[in-house]
């Protein structure tokens, strides 16, 4: 699966580096100074690299844990994210990563010990004057579970959250790779959040990801095992028969996943910063999603306000039929 591994000199002897190299004995190894030499180089083609992404093993320097944008919440007021990985196995056409990063290679920061120090530091700081839980989001710049076989995220990071009950962890994924979660006792302070899209969208837009049905089945199994589930209808995609498709999706979700297992349900519009959208448009000039009825307000590119509002109102109404108000977090349009 991985045929090319770039390794920063500083982590060449790191135990995780040695483990990953053992996992891929046939991969070609290239030594690099800093990951930016490969990852941030100008004139790279994200679309072509997506055909065969390489793995970059690197050391995360400076800040490991950062505050989320102000509206990024699932109920808490103290929200942070950390990215042990940059980029994703999947190839979702709406994903901001394809417009944000020049390279489609996966960067895996192997120094989890520094991330845990960062998490502890933020937690100590935030807990000094308040007992309110602190939320940490891990799936901001990657899919939390898709490359679990390589990252072993659950092995490296779960002990921290087991010891720190006041730290909430959101794992966000489109993967059905739940075996690592089923093999350990559920973490009461973790939310396994699945991006859920109508099946035609999963198939035609969320390339290489698990089908909607498999995601639902995975969420169901986890719920039965005692894990708390998050449902993320984000972004809402305007497409032919969208009303029927979102109704069907919500119907399936409510039948398969018991409401008491649901921690939170969020939904949000599809929006791109203008410059990012133009980069994506250059990569995929004839893609139906990118060619869709999108509109620029000078700063962001999104569906026409009327479409956004109609979808927001319709899906909010749908969600409120199935889930109690305190579980719903709908980003306003």
């Amino acid at each position: 699966m991985i045929e090319q591994i770039y390794i920063e000199d500083s982590v060449r002897e790191h135990p995780t580096t040695l483990r990953v190299c053992n996992q891929f004995p046939k991969a070609s190894i290239v030594s690099i100074g800093r990951y930016g030499e490969v990852f941030n180089r100008s004139n790279q083609n994200f679309r072509l690299q997506k055909k065969k992404s390489a793995l970059i093993l690197a050391e995360k320097q400076n800040e490991t844990v950062l505050p989320t944008p102000s509206n990024y919440t699932i109920g808490g007021s103290k929200n942070y994210y950390f990215s042990h990985m940059l980029n994703c196995l999947y190839d979702c056409r709406y994903c901001f990563l394809q417009g944000m990063f020049r390279s489609a290679n996966y960067v895996f920061f192997v120094n989890d010990e520094d991330f845990k120090k960062g998490l502890q530091s933020v937690l100590d700081q935030e807990s000094a004057n308040s007992e309110e839980p602190v939320y940490f989001f891990s799936g901001y710049d990657c899919d939390s579970l898709a490359l679990e076989k390589i990252t072993q995220f659950t092995i490296h990071y779960f002990p921290f959250f087991r010891e720190n009950k006041n730290a909430m962890l959101e794992l966000r994924t489109k993967s059905s790779n739940i075996r690592p979660l089923l093999s350990v006792p559920p973490l009461p302070n973790a939310i396994i959040a699945f991006t859920m899209s109508p099946e035609p969208i999963a198939k035609e837009v969320e390339h290489k990801s698990a089908s909607t049905l498999r995601r639902i089945q995975s969420a169901k199994k986890l719920a039965h095992a005692g894990w708390r589930i998050g449902l993320r209808l984000d972004p809402l995609i305007y497409h032919e028969n969208w009303k029927e498709n979102y109704s069907l999706l919500l119907d399936q979700l409510s039948k398969e996943i018991p409401e008491e297992s649901i921690h939170s349900v969020t939904m949000g519009p599809m929006r791109f910063p203008k410059a990012m959208f133009h980069r994506i448009q250059e990569l995929y000039p004839k893609d139906p999603l990118i060619s869709g009825p999108l509109h620029s307000d000078g700063k962001n590119v999104s569906y026409e306000k009327s479409i956004e509002m109609e979808m927001h109102a319709y899906c909010k109404e749908l969600l409120s039929n199935y889930y109690s108000e305190n579980r719903l977090f709908c980003y306003e349009v």
Binding site: E204, E240, E304
Partner: peptide, 12 residues
């Protein structure tokens, strides 16, 4: 013609 708000077509 293109900004007429028609939804994207994806085959089911």
């Amino acid at each position: 013609k293109l900004d007429f708000p028609m939804p994207s077509k994806f085959s089911p």
